[in-house]
């Protein structure tokens, strides 16, 4: 507004009006162009960064998966092109189906339990009792701890002979379980630890979603005689659906990627019983003295593909909610 008035007061005599407005238009266009250049100058570092430290590693990874690498050709960079050989080898490997199955079980069970527990706790903390803020903050601790800390703590708690979990089972008369060393229980063990880490994330997001639900809706329902369960089923849960969708999809994308926890607790063993695509990819590439970079990268790329499917779904859901 002020700018426009300033323009008018500076307007030159009538005789040269046409040429002056042309000139003004030119100046404005030049300004806009300069504005655009400055804007891209602000974005230049991030664009260069993404190209160098995202696109290039991803390209190298794709390249790895399409060539036949050995340790020597890895250093020299002259490995022969081998087409889809690595992918074929990986798909026919006896580890492929167990790894895919474990990835699915690990991801789905983790997010189902995390979400249910997170939702229950979010509803509980939404009652605003004394100390609720402090306790909710304490609930964040598992999520903030370095994964190596939580993984090694759980490893010791689940130790067959001296673990506190087996001691607790002993107290209620249950025989000790070989949590980390039996093929039946290894996957269960890493899922338990992962659920513990993921609950806070679900709690925080769902709790902030609950706060956007107007309280008078619940009051009106209570006046109409709806009990707590009715209120939850007919009001809270349906209104929370958009936030739930986002939470579940984000959880899916994050859980598919989990590597540290499984690697530190079981290394994917015993005999692949807790191997997921992420730990398998790592084991192929770095886990032995004879690294198989090509197949390792191929597994990694399959994992990216799965993550992207859910990732794009997430973006779609989020875009639709914004609209």
């Amino acid at each position: 507004m002020t700018l426009a008035r300033a323009d008018r007061s500076q307007r030159p005599p009538a005789a040269s009006r046409a040429t002056a407005s042309d000139a003004a238009e030119g100046v404005r266009r030049a300004q806009r162009r300069r504005h655009r250049w400055t804007a891209w100058a602000f974005l230049l570092p991030i664009v260069a960064y993404l190209a160098a430290f995202y696109l290039y590693p991803l390209y190298r990874n794709l390249d790895l998966s399409l060539r036949h690498y050995t340790v020597r050709s890895f250093v020299d960079g002259d490995a022969p092109y081998s087409g889809w050989d690595n992918f074929r080898q990986v798909l026919h490997d006896p580890t492929f189906w167990p790894a895919l199955r474990n990835t699915m079980v690990f991801t789905l069970v983790s997010i189902a339990v995390q979400y249910t527990a997170g939702l229950g706790l979010a509803v509980f903390f939404n009652r605003h009792f004394r100390l609720s803020g402090l306790l909710r903050a304490l609930f964040l601790i598992p999520w903030l701890l370095p994964l190596i800390v939580s993984s090694s703590t759980w490893s010791w708690m689940l130790n067959s002979e001296s673990g506190v979990v087996n001691y607790a089972l002993h107290l209620v008369g249950v025989a000790p379980v070989d949590w980390l060393t039996s093929p039946h229980w290894a996957l269960v063990s890493v899922i338990i630890a992962n659920i513990w880490i993921g609950i806070p994330f679900n709690l925080v997001i769902l709790h902030s979603g609950l706060q956007n639900i107007p309280a008078d809706l619940h009051e009106a329902a209570a006046l109409d005689g709806a009990g707590p369960w009715q209120q939850f089923r007919r009001i809270t849960f349906p209104l929370l659906r958009p936030v739930s969708a986002i939470t579940l999809l984000l959880g899916l994308v994050y859980t598919l990627k989990v590597f540290d926890l499984i690697w530190i607790m079981t290394k994917g063993g015993p005999t692949d019983s807790s191997t997921t695509l992420a730990t398998w990819s790592y084991r192929l590439g770095f886990g032995s003295l004879l690294p198989q970079f090509g197949p390792g990268a191929a597994v990694g790329n399959i994992l990216i593909l799965i993550a992207l499917v859910f990732g794009l779904l997430y973006i779609r859901v989020q875009k639709r909610q914004e609209a």
Binding site: L50, L58, F74, Y282, F293, A297
Partner: peptide
């Protein structure tokens, strides 16, 4: 947004080569 979804293990392998 998409960059956030790429598994760290894949990035690690690419970085290793580079």
């Amino acid at each position: 947004l998409i960059a956030q979804m790429i598994p760290g293990i894949v990035m690690a392998m690419g970085f290793y080569a580079i």
